[in-house]
Design a protein around this nucleic acid. Structure first.
Lengths: 254, 254
DNA sequence: TAGTGGTCTAGACCACGAA
DNA sequence: TCGTGGTCTAGACCACTAA
């Protein structure tokens, strides 16, 4: 046979991929172990380079394996953070000066803010709509990147009306104890209700680079809107999360 | 040049992919439109088949485009459902005989249960742990597939202790008005609290087939646990969602 | 330096969809 | 029937990593 797939048979690359997956499931390859490379698969299965490649790409696109250029293809480890969407925003926490992120920390794992930037610009239209701003009104945008065990896992950009927060610590890189929500409370705009909307898709090339995502890893897009008691939206926080690094959790009553 | 990438330059396939993306963003190709095929890209960019292919595969793996064998590569449409995780489980709804899914329906879009199967088997260990069952105890598992506009979007498997629900309508394919939660309430095990845990990853080949997912579409894994007032877990529902068809939404107070 | 994965070429046969 | 994407071959040069 020179090409094409036999009508009754499993695809060659699929068969190779399945055998590798089975070996991983059986524990023959542990997380972090190196899998057989392209050359080895070519000889053991007697296939062309591109076919061996495609077999390995199946594992990568399912998030099971990760290629490192010049080194090999390795079984990925999966050790996600648990992000509690509701308890973490309870008043008792930010009101008392805790970081909103402290509950994200499993024992001994450090989630660190890698870079912060605060800018003021004209409000993007989809943000202006939610915050009830007029055309041309300006927003204060706080962008942060969070790093876990040396790997970036979360990009967060928080948008607030520039006129609302002018002069407060919110416009500083260090927003102070309790963070932005404590400052909003001091300004008389304490958040009372939150809405989080979650999507998931494959990352753009830019996002994949910023989060150092191996191919086959989707991202969560979490958009949180904070409302005051009277129902006014005061903050919109757009987040991009490495989906392989997070479990999102919500608890609520019936 | 015969092969390899010029050290300073953008990859060929990446450049082609970027131009296609720009054209889509600019509106030259609308959702549902057919993109230039492999043959057309080969001639217009003077590249080999595999290179044109790889350019198109970039768009597919980012979920921007979708290949249909024998027809072409098309710009994908994105029109997700909004799944409200909290309001939809309020007592007022299932208590009154509404389907839990009714709030998922945007006007004029029909979410239909495609297939139902109810089985009884020994509890998988991760389910037994949560439900507090002993080794060898049995569970009643209700599996359903939901279809929107002819496309499957959600696979749901609900696990309950077999001894707890024996003889009730829960063991029937039609669980009756108000669904499983109304029946649990009648049995004296009304759910009072819920926990939903969300992950996202690329689908396995099986999941991709069952949900008819184009490549480049991740899935949500939503695991909901229902607790009674005294904190006993009475139901574990494992769901697999087409991430391109859903926005998950949670609203809660500070 | 040897071996790895990343990109690229120039061919081929196949199953499928639309006309 | 004809064009499409899906699979496959057998070569090639490159950048990167680890020994």
């Amino acid at each position: 046979m020179t090409a094409g797939q036999g009508s009754g048979g499993e695809r060659k690359y699929q068969r190779i991929a399945n055998e590798l997956k089975a070996a991983i499931t059986a524990g023959e390859y542990q997380p972090g172990d190196r899998l057989p490379g392209e050359n080895e698969l070519m000889t053991t299965y007697q296939v062309a380079r591109m076919t061996a490649r495609q077999a390995l790409s199946v594992l990568q696109s399912e998030g099971i394996a990760e290629a490192r250029k010049g080194a090999g293809v390795f079984v990925r480890t999966f050790r996600p953070l648990r992000r509690r969407g509701i308890q973490r925003l309870a008043q008792s926490q930010w009101g008392a000066g805790h970081s909103v992120w402290s509950t994200d920390l499993d024992e001994d794992r450090e989630l660190i803010v890698d870079s912060v930037s605060v800018t003021e610009k004209e409000a993007p239209s989809h943000i202006a709509d939610v915050l009830g701003l007029r055309r041309g009104d300006r927003v204060c945008s706080r962008s942060r990147r969070f790093v876990l065990d040396g790997k970036p896992v979360l990009l967060s950009t928080s948008h607030l009306s520039a006129s609302l927060v002018a002069g407060s610590a919110i416009t500083q890189e260090d927003s102070g104890a309790g963070g932005v929500y404590a400052r909003l409370a001091e300004l008389g705009h304490a958040p009372a209700r939150f809405r989080e909307e979650i999507r998931s898709r494959m990352p753009s090339a830019t996002e994949a680079q910023e989060l150092r995502l191996p191919s086959g890893t989707p991202v969560f897009l979490v958009c949180r809107t904070a409302f005051t008691e009277d129902g006014t939206a005061v903050e919109v926080n757009e987040m991009v999360l490495d989906a392989g690094s997070y479990i999102l959790e919500y608890e609520f009553g019936a």
